[in-house]
């Protein structure tokens, strides 16, 4: 396949970015999207663009985030042709394959755009905001003591299942990236919901919801208008029903104060 790529290039967080156009040829439809970018980068390095030292006027290879490349780590991102994680459902960018595109296509690749996710370089954004939200309350407090028996606390199967569905969140940031309001509600809801459904997490549910929402607002994420775009683009298909639970937890906690 021969493709034209329009890629956002930005030297660093403070620099002004712009789109640059590249051509790649002989790409196998069976290669993954990230492999296609690897090929482009190899091409750029071979053309004399030093991968380490970025000379004046020479941008070097395209920087993008990736790690496990099997859809579980949440490291890859990319907003491809208007869709977070590209034109396929329930996948991360690393699981996207070139067969989803046509020969001769022009593909526009942008970084996540959100006030909470500043661009570090090219297509790499800083998703530390999600870590900060987690640190605000996305955990259970475990005091030391003897190891309790497994299954000592009975949990109804439907609740355990729903909790696990929410716990599938890999924190990739696609929800905030695709939301027209740049809202991180699906991420926060997945964490709050998965813990609130279990007896171990229920104890701190009120404090958790309040602390995580406060941190989310503080970091500049928008408010939810229930478009459900986040659910459509979430690589783990996490339902907005968890947002309803977050709203419930948050409002009941606040009204009790």
């Amino acid at each position: 396949m021969n493709l034209t790529l329009k890629i956002w290039r930005q030297a660093n967080a403070k620099a002004r970015g712009a789109f640059e156009t590249y051509n790649v040829s002989d790409i196998s439809p069976d290669s993954s999207f990230l492999e296609m970018l690897d090929i482009l980068n190899l091409q750029l390095v071979r053309a004399g663009k030093d991968p380490v030292v970025v000379e004046k006027g020479c941008r070097g290879p395209v920087a993008f985030d990736h790690d496990c490349r099997e859809g579980i780590c949440g490291m890859c991102s990319l907003y491809i042709n208007g869709r977070a994680h590209g034109p396929d459902d329930d996948i991360t960018t690393c699981q996207l394959h070139m067969r989803k595109f046509k020969d001769g296509d022009t593909i526009t690749i942008e970084p996540w755009r959100s006030a909470g996710f500043p661009v570090v370089k090219d297509l790499v954004v800083d998703r530390g905001a999600y870590d900060k939200i987690l640190q605000a309350g996305g955990f259970i407090s475990v005091n030391t003591g003897g190891v309790p028996d497994a299954n000592a606390i009975p949990i109804p199967k439907p609740k355990a299942d729903e909790s696990m569905d929410a716990a599938a969140c890999i924190g990739c940031g696609a929800c905030a990236a695709t939301c027209k309001n740049g809202s991180a509600m699906l991420f926060v809801a997945a964490r709050v919901s998965s813990l609130a459904l279990l007896p171990q997490g229920k104890m701190e549910a009120a404090r958790r919801a309040k602390a995580m929402v406060a941190k989310m607002d503080e970091l500049g994420f928008g408010a939810c208008t229930n478009t459900q775009a986040c659910e459509a683009e979430c690589p783990k298909g996490i339902s907005v029903a968890h947002i309803a639970r977050l709203n419930r937890e948050f409002l009941s906690a606040k009204l009790k104060d």
Partner: peptide, 19 residues
């Protein structure tokens, strides 16, 4: 508030499924 949450707009309009 929501407009401030995305200071730099996307070049390609959002194609995600939403009414």
């Amino acid at each position: 508030h929501n407009m401030k949450a995305r200071p730099v707009k996307y070049a390609v309009g959002n194609q995600a499924e939403a009414t």
